[in-house]
């Protein structure tokens, strides 16, 4: 269970302060998929960065299964990212000189997944996204965009994190491939029991989520 309370983030730039996230509060259940929509520059990515502890909030609380994350130190944030969060990016962001399988193994390594079980877990996840066999030994450059995003999903879920943060996961894919990717995220969320937050522009993607939240100039509101 994710409980976000009164989260705030302001960027201080030469051109002035940008209040990117304003008093954001919401809850999300385990196994639930929540869509976050909003115009460009409304603060979607900033919110995900705060929840993924890639950036520190100025104010507010992030409670994941009863653990307060907002005031972790840098070592604690690193540990949390490695074991409790999985990211899926618009640009896939696989490590280019590692094979698909090695990308998944890398996430398991950082999360301190038991060594003896890593290979099995990696193959299990690759099978889950439908990328087992020969393709799992290819480097990202030799995979299609949809295939790369599958690998990214396998990597994100591999260490069994509580929270999956996906920023425009279909943004670089064609419509039908995007649909399959979202469906995959959905099913992984329920089978793995993880909370999935999906940032998207795409109404079709948003409509597949259990709930929809809209962010406007840093202010978040539930769409009924």
């Amino acid at each position: 269970m994710l409980k976000v309370d009164n989260l705030n983030k302001t960027f201080h730039t030469a051109a002035g302060d940008v209040h990117a996230v304003r008093n954001v509060s919401f809850n999300a259940d385990n196994g639930e998929m929540v869509a976050i929509i909003g115009a460009s520059g409304s603060g979607k990515s900033t919110l995900l960065a705060l929840l993924g502890l890639l950036d520190a909030p100025d104010k507010g609380s992030i409670d994941l299964d009863g653990v307060e994350l907002a005031n972790l130190d840098s070592g604690g944030r690193t540990k949390y990212r490695s074991s409790q969060v999985g990211f899926v990016f618009q640009q896939f962001n696989l490590i280019p000189n590692l094979s698909a399988r090695e990308n998944v193994l890398l996430a398991l390594e950082y999360s301190h997944w038991p060594k003896a079980d890593r290979a099995r877990r990696a193959d299990e996840m690759l099978a889950l996204v439908g990328l087992d066999g020969e393709k799992s030994r290819r480097r990202p450059a030799r995979l299609s965009g949809g295939e790369q995003q599958r690998v990214a999903i396998a990597r994100a879920f591999a260490a069994q994190p509580q929270l999956i943060l996906a920023d425009e996961p279909t943004g670089s894919l064609d419509k039908s491939t995007g649909q399959k990717i979202v469906a995959l995220l959905r099913s992984a969320a329920s089978t793995q029991g993880a909370t999935v937050l999906v940032v998207t522009h795409d109404e079709k993607v948003a409509s597949q989520a259990d709930r929809r939240l809209e962010i406007d100039d840093g202010v978040l509101a539930e769409i009924a």
Partner: peptide, 16 residues
């Protein structure tokens, strides 16, 4: 840069 960012997002410690 991006790869370093990804590694950090994956929870890789700076020293690694």
């Amino acid at each position: 840069r991006r790869e370093v960012g990804v590694l950090k997002a994956l929870g890789a410690p700076n020293r690694s």
